[in-house]
């Protein structure tokens, strides 16, 4: 709906991709691992490889968790914007169809967090 206003009320989105100096925002959440209070906002170049995103960005973000080193990436279940999805680690972020501000969630069956309590 339109905003109730005295005059025309139309604005540019504050977070359009062009405002990020060549970077693309990708959100990532590791399900059932609540040691991390919330999912993360990553900023990557669209042509960087998905494999690098996992090896660098995810390792930086999640490496402190004892489960992280045990993740078998061939068995990980991915969701992109809540839909089941299979990434190609060799292809770029863009070629994997990851748009600006998309949300990637991953599930690691068999790794139930600290003490098996989804932490």
């Amino acid at each position: 709906m339109a905003v109730s206003a005295l005059r025309t009320y139309v604005f540019e989105p504050a977070d359009a991709e062009k405002n990020f100096h060549g970077l693309r925002i990708v959100y990532v959440g590791w399900d059932k691992h609540l040691m991390f209070a919330s999912p993360f906002m990553l900023a990557v170049t669209p042509d960087s490889s998905f494999g690098d995103l996992v090896a660098k960005n995810l390792a930086d973000a999640y490496g402190a968790h004892p489960d992280f080193a045990k993740v078998d990436w061939s068995k990980v279940e991915w969701l992109k914007n809540s839909q089941p999805w299979t990434p190609d680690f060799g292809k770029s972020v863009d070629a994997n169809g990851i748009r600006h501000k998309d949300l990637l969630r991953f599930r690691t069956p068999g790794l139930a967090g600290i003490g098996g309590k989804d932490i």
């Binding site: 709906m1 905003v3 009320y9 139309v10 504050a14 100096h21």
Partner: peptide, 21 residues
Amino acid sequence: FEHEPEKYIQSWLPAHQIVQG
């Protein structure tokens, strides 16, 4: 948001603002 999207697309989200410089 869905009732007044034009208002909230302007949100000054700190994490994004950091990346925007």
